[in-house]
Design a protein around this nucleic acid. Structure first.
Lengths: 197, 197
DNA sequence: ACCTGAACACCGTTCAAGT
DNA sequence: ACCTGAACACCGTTCAAGT
């Protein structure tokens, strides 16, 4: 075991906003948003809860803002997509996956907290369509249709699927929905009306 | 002033789930979800907070379930609509209005609580499209596209618009979005791909 | 500069007691 | 049957104090 000079006497890295945010996210993902408390977060970081306020002066509100930013900001990148429509499609699939992974954060995304969180994501969707020759008005509408659909569909999925085995939501005697297929088909339908000028 | 035999000695109607739910909703609409506490709810009902547990044995969880049911359940009705497409459109407009009126409840709608809350609404959307000759598979997808879009768009609107004068969200120097127009255009685009067999 | 410990005002909820 | 009052375990947060 090599000495780590960046590790202090208590054998733990110093507190930082990133470490705090990561620990908070892992509590939310593992136990749910309701179990995220400053005291529990302190325990996870091996620190007294009050130490967190030194890095986040606005307290829990600010912590939740960081969680929203961490989950909501996923810019669309052209990547190796074959055209703007495929790029939108890929973005939507990736964004949905992220929302479902961090579904405990979803309630925070439909709140007024951290209003700027979605702007860079929306802007990159717009840029993608502009580059593909989609008229500005159509692109603005399409960006909100797409982002709205992905957000809302994730909400429907969270409601309709158990988080852990044992939750068992769903009407008994009714076939469970194949949400992956449903999302894919819905995405095609929602994007069908978007066309270049 | 006529004597009201249904009013008891303390000059207030007896507690009931409906009265409790209404009072809770008016707190959420007026002050936000975070200010809904059992003690405040008791004050609004002129009762000790603990009296509420007699009507809602599962406590606050059950109260929130009722709020979700109250906001989420709005069946689509043919009404005087000119065909199923118009009926879907009217439903979406009405549902959006309700979500924005009770925007404090929105975080609860993207949670696993009260999983059955959206099923009757979804079922009536399906029935509407079936009656219009839309193939079953298309209708199922379309129902979730529509409901997902309305939910997600409401979330975007809540993020992007101040709840009360003084909140002032939005990037300064940028023209504010006309959300009514944006929703109408998005709705048309999202429903464009839905066609009868 | 960074963290701790005690304290304060508030929660949701339980339980025995009142009527 | 319906409501109250006191109590308990927990919150978020402030503040003075430690290093």
């Amino acid at each position: 075991m090599v000495r780590q000079p960046s590790i202090n006497a208590q054998n733990r890295p110093p507190l930082s906003i990133d470490r705090i945010t990561d620990a908070a996210l892992s509590i939310v993902d593992g136990q749910g948003l309701g179990r995220l408390t400053m005291r529990r977060l302190g325990d996870a970081l091996e620190v007294e809860a009050m130490a967190i306020y030194h890095h986040l002066p606005r307290g829990k509100e600010q912590l939740l803002d960081h969680l929203v930013a961490h989950v909501a900001v996923l810019p669309a990148s052209e990547g190796d997509a074959t055209g703007w429509r495929d790029a939108l499609h890929r973005w939507a699939v990736a964004y949905r996956a992220r929302l479902l992974t961090h579904q405990g954060v979803l309630p925070l995304l439909v709140t007024r907290r951290n209003p700027a969180a979605l702007t860079t994501t929306t802007a990159s969707l717009l840029e993608l369509m502009r580059g593909g020759g989609v008229p500005e008005d159509t692109a603005r509408v399409a960006a909100h249709v797409l982002l709205g659909f992905v957000l809302g569909h994730a909400a429907l999925e969270v409601r309709g699927t158990p988080a852990f085995p044992g939750d068992s939501v769903g009407t008994p005697g009714e076939a469970p929905i194949d949400w992956d297929a449903r999302f894919a088909a819905g995405l095609d339908q929602a994007l069908a009306g978007v066309n270049p000028g």
